[in-house]
């Protein structure tokens, strides 16, 4: 192998905060530290994958032989709007209601 960058197990708090932002996950300062330390040890464990020679191996993204299954485009009944909106915390005029996208 040798061509892959060495996965970085010296994960920083800033990287943890960046990943949390990507995941839209609010974390407290304590959680940032805790997840940084836990992810470091999990990633250090996962680094042993680099010992497996996969230079000539194709990736398995999915277990099935079947690929790109097609079917006829037949209209089917769908859920009524009320049933779909019933679980939403906030709705208006038959729509989901969200907070401002920009301040």
């Amino acid at each position: 192998m040798g061509t892959l960058p060495t996965p970085d197990s010296g994960l920083s708090s800033e990287e943890v905060e960046h990943v949390a932002r990507l995941a839209r996950l609010g974390l407290t300062a304590d959680e940032v530290t805790r997840y940084r330390d836990q992810l470091r040890s999990i990633l250090a464990y996962i680094d042993q994958l680099n010992r497996a020679d996969t230079s000539k191996i194709l990736a398995t993204a999915h277990p099935l032989d079947e690929r790109t299954v097609m079917r006829d485009d037949v209209p089917q009944p769908c859920l009524p709007v009320e049933a779909v909106l019933r679980n939403a915390p906030s709705t208006e005029d038959g729509y989901f209601k969200v907070k401002a996208i920009q301040e």
Binding site: L4, P5, T6, P7, L49, A52, T54, L58, A59, T60
Partner: peptide, 14 residues
Amino acid sequence: YDAYYLKAQKVRTL
């Protein structure tokens, strides 16, 4: 992505 996810999918093939 390549170092982790793609690598893991290749190991899955093994």
